[in-house]
Design a protein around this nucleic acid. Structure first.
Lengths: 158, 158
DNA sequence: TTCTAAAGTTGTAATGATTACAATTTATCC
DNA sequence: GGATAAATTGTAATCATTACAACTTTAGAA
């Protein structure tokens, strides 16, 4: 057992969770794919190659355990699959409506204090933005220009 | 056809949508249940009594049309069903993890400008808070006190 | 080290919101 | 009134997630 496993064992036991190879690999996967915000399916597909006989139920169980323990955060910006990321400093999430890419952005969410909610116990704050990412804006503009040019050509010909 | 239907016809035609009894009733339902943020199922159950033979597909189709037209907003604070509300001034949504009630709160979302997203085209901004509502906090405290009292009684008896 | 109970894993079946689709009906425009 | 595109309906399919029961592994006690 290597040192990173020992570190994880400590980390997990602090949260009353037991160590397992599956859990180690799932957490490792999230660590190595921080920016892509993988969903359960993606994690399952990738780890199936490393862990023969891995069950998708394990992926779901583990992710839930991690979320409950505060190790991992669920990103529910899509109404289809839940995506996951390691718990880190709070930030906002932008999702591109076109290509689906999720982009993290810094935002001081703790700064957002709502007087109206004084009597409420606010435990989680999520800021979700939706729109077009720079890449998709560029593609859209190129397409629009092509159409305009085609129209112009047609007019010139007539 | 009464005046409110005429108003709706105008409103719908502005969005290139046709009038129908179903659409009128769905919009009416959302209007009369603004604070409860109903989901498709709830709308369907309620309107089935008024519109015999109503199809759930119609509820989904209509809600999608309304959202596309900007008449209605989807609230995806729960990872299960999507809930709906009439488009109004932007506000935040708080959901109670215990009882599921959704509470709207005023927040100047337009104020939230993220320099990092200058190259992005931000079309929608959602602020979702999660935690406990005042009512559930009260219930929780009462339960806790009851347990404490029971423990104390047990100690006193021994 | 061995034993044991609790926790984790697995596979399959079920759930439940949402969508696809084709037939029928309806609204709008001429 | 008739034509046409749009809306409605009902049924079947989809797909992420959960329920559950049998089996395996972990962690701590003996």
């Amino acid at each position: 057992m290597n040192s990173s496993s020992e570190y994880l064992i400590k980390k997990l036991s602090q949260k009353s969770l037991r160590f397992s190879f599956q859990r180690m690999k799932i957490l490792e996967y999230l660590y190595q794919h921080e920016s892509s915000h993988p969903d359960a399916e993606e994690i399952y597909e990738s780890l199936s190659n490393i862990i023969p006989g891995l069950s998708k139920t394990t992926i779901y169980n583990t992710l839930h355990s991690f979320v409950n323990a505060g190790l991992v955060q669920a990103v529910d910006i899509e109404n289809s699959e839940t995506r996951y990321e390691l718990s880190a400093s709070r930030h906002g999430h932008f999702i591109c409506k076109q290509c689906g890419v999720i982009h993290d952005f810094d935002i001081d969410i703790d700064m957002i204090v709502v007087k109206e909610l004084a009597q409420f116990q606010v435990e989680e704050k999520d800021v979700y933005f939706r729109g077009l990412c720079p890449n998709c804006i560029r593609i859209q503009n190129e397409t629009t220009n092509t159409i305009k040019n085609k129209k112009k050509e047609a007019q010139d010909e007539s």
